[in-house]
Write a protein that binds this DNA or RNA. Structure first.
Length: 123
DNA sequence: GAGGTGACGACCC
DNA sequence: TGGGTCGCCACCT
């Protein structure tokens, strides 16, 4: 992944914040990714917290950004508390994702790595 | 203008 | 091997 252009930067000054939203929207139906995976893809592997922060803001447009498909590296629904309106696990289950005890059972199987998948597609 | 916050992850002991 | 601590960086107050 080139360090210059991570994503198709709509603006020259697109923020890390915006890129998180872009990547999150690219997560396929029925698949999930992690905060760290997104952060790593954006070249800020140590800034996973920022990804969570960005998704926190995305809740205003949760209809556009499937933030429920983003969990921590263990597949746990750490952001569940922020889905007070629509249960996070309910959204995941609706996509055929097995959630048990606030954790994705087949996390490894449905894990979607943006750094891997998007590099192949390279839109 | 500066400091605190935050849905995590990696490193160190 | 497992638990604890630090770092990261943009946005909000």
């Amino acid at each position: 992944m080139p360090e210059g252009k991570r994503l198709h930067e709509e603006e020259n000054s697109i923020s890390f914040f915006e890129m998180v939203h872009q990547v999150t929207k690219l997560v396929p139906y029925g698949r999930v990714t992690s905060y760290g995976a997104i952060a790593k893809y954006l070249g800020a592997a140590r800034s996973a917290r920022m990804v969570g922060w960005a998704l926190n803001s995305s809740k205003v447009s949760i209809d556009d950004i499937p933030a429920h498909r983003v969990v921590n590296r263990l597949g746990q629904l750490s952001g569940k508390a922020h889905f007070k309106n629509v249960p996070m696990e309910d959204l995941l289950k609706a996509e055929g994702i097995v959630v048990e005890n606030l954790q994705i059972v087949n996390f490894k199987q449905i894990f979607w790595d943006p750094g891997l998948e998007l590099s192949l597609d390279a839109e």
